[in-house]
Amino acid sequence: PEEVRRLVEELYRKGVSPEQVKKILKKQGIDEREIEKVLRRIG
């Protein structure tokens, strides 16, 4: 979803590592598979 992409990109631009991005967003209840999809697209 758009909102997940925005959150991931925001953290990524701040220099947060992909592993940390995953941890942070998982705590917020976001599906890990969604996060990984976005990270793959960015990375």
Rank of each mutant, 00 (worst) to 15 (best):
P1K: 09
P1W: 13
P1E: 15
P1N: 14
P1V: 12
P1T: 14
E2T: 09
E2L: 10
E2C: 05
E2G: 09
E2Q: 11
E2S: 11
E2A: 11
E2H: 09
E3I: 10
E3Y: 11
E3P: 07
E3R: 08
E3A: 11
V4M: 09
V4H: 02
R5E: 10
R5G: 08
R5D: 08
R5A: 13
R5P: 03
R6M: 09
R6D: 06
R6L: 09
R6G: 06
R6E: 07
L7H: 04
L7Q: 10
L7G: 01
L7S: 04
L7I: 09
L7T: 05
L7P: 00
L7E: 03
L7F: 06
L7Y: 05
L7N: 03
V8H: 00
V8L: 04
V8W: 02
V8K: 00
E9R: 04
E9K: 06
E9D: 08
E9N: 05
E9F: 03
E9I: 08
E9Q: 06
E10P: 02
E10R: 06
E10W: 06
E10V: 05
E10F: 06
L11N: 01
L11F: 06
L11H: 15
L11E: 02
L11A: 03
L11D: 00
Y12Q: 10
Y12A: 09
Y12W: 10
Y12T: 14
R13A: 14
R13I: 10
R13N: 14
R13Y: 14
R13W: 12
K14D: 11
K14L: 11
K14V: 08
K14G: 09
K14Y: 07
K14T: 12
G15K: 05
G15V: 01
G15T: 01
G15Q: 04
G15A: 04
G15Y: 02
V16F: 13
V16I: 13
V16L: 10
V16M: 13
S17N: 10
S17M: 09
S17G: 10
S17A: 12
S17P: 13
S17Y: 07
P18D: 11
P18Y: 10
P18V: 13
P18N: 09
P18F: 10
P18A: 13
P18T: 14
P18G: 09
P18S: 10
P18E: 12
P18L: 12
E19C: 13
E19L: 07
E19A: 10
E19W: 03
E19P: 07
E19T: 10
E19D: 15
E19S: 11
E19G: 09
E19Y: 03
Q20D: 14
Q20H: 11
Q20R: 09
Q20M: 14
Q20V: 12
Q20W: 11
Q20G: 12
Q20Y: 07
Q20T: 11
V21E: 00
V21Y: 01
V21F: 02
V21C: 04
V21L: 10
V21R: 00
V21K: 00
V21S: 02
K22L: 13
K22I: 15
K22N: 05
K22V: 14
K22F: 07
K23W: 05
K23T: 14
K23C: 09
K23D: 15
K23G: 12
K23M: 07
K23P: 04
I24K: 06
I24F: 05
I24T: 07
I24Y: 05
I24L: 09
I24W: 04
I24S: 04
I24M: 09
I24G: 01
I24V: 09
L25F: 01
L25E: 00
L25Q: 00
L25A: 03
K26A: 14
K26S: 14
K26E: 09
K26Q: 14
K26I: 15
K26R: 12
K26Y: 07
K26T: 14
K26D: 04
K27V: 11
K27I: 11
K27G: 14
Q28V: 12
Q28H: 08
Q28F: 10
Q28T: 09
Q28E: 09
Q28R: 12
G29W: 02
G29F: 03
G29T: 01
G29P: 01
G29L: 04
G29A: 03
I30G: 01
I30R: 03
I30L: 12
I30K: 02
D31P: 11
D31V: 04
D31E: 08
D31M: 05
D31L: 05
D31K: 06
D31S: 11
D31F: 02
D31N: 08
E32A: 07
E32Q: 07
E32F: 02
E32M: 06
E32G: 06
E32V: 07
E32H: 04
E32Y: 03
R33Y: 06
R33W: 08
R33T: 12
R33E: 15
E34G: 02
E34Y: 05
E34R: 03
E34D: 11
E34H: 05
E34S: 07
I35A: 03
I35Y: 03
I35E: 00
I35W: 02
I35Q: 01
E36W: 01
E36C: 04
E36N: 06
E36R: 01
E36L: 02
E36D: 14
E36K: 03
E36Q: 02
K37D: 15
K37W: 01
K37G: 08
K37Q: 09
K37M: 08
K37I: 09
V38R: 02
V38S: 08
V38I: 14
V38Y: 04
L39V: 12
L39G: 03
L39E: 04
L39T: 09
L39D: 02
L39R: 02
L39M: 12
R40A: 15
R40W: 03
R40T: 13
R40E: 15
R40I: 14
R40P: 08
R41V: 15
R41I: 15
R41M: 14
I42Y: 05
I42H: 07
I42E: 05
I42V: 09
I42A: 07
I42M: 13
G43S: 14
G43L: 03
G43E: 15
G43K: 08
G43R: 09
G43A: 15
G43W: 01
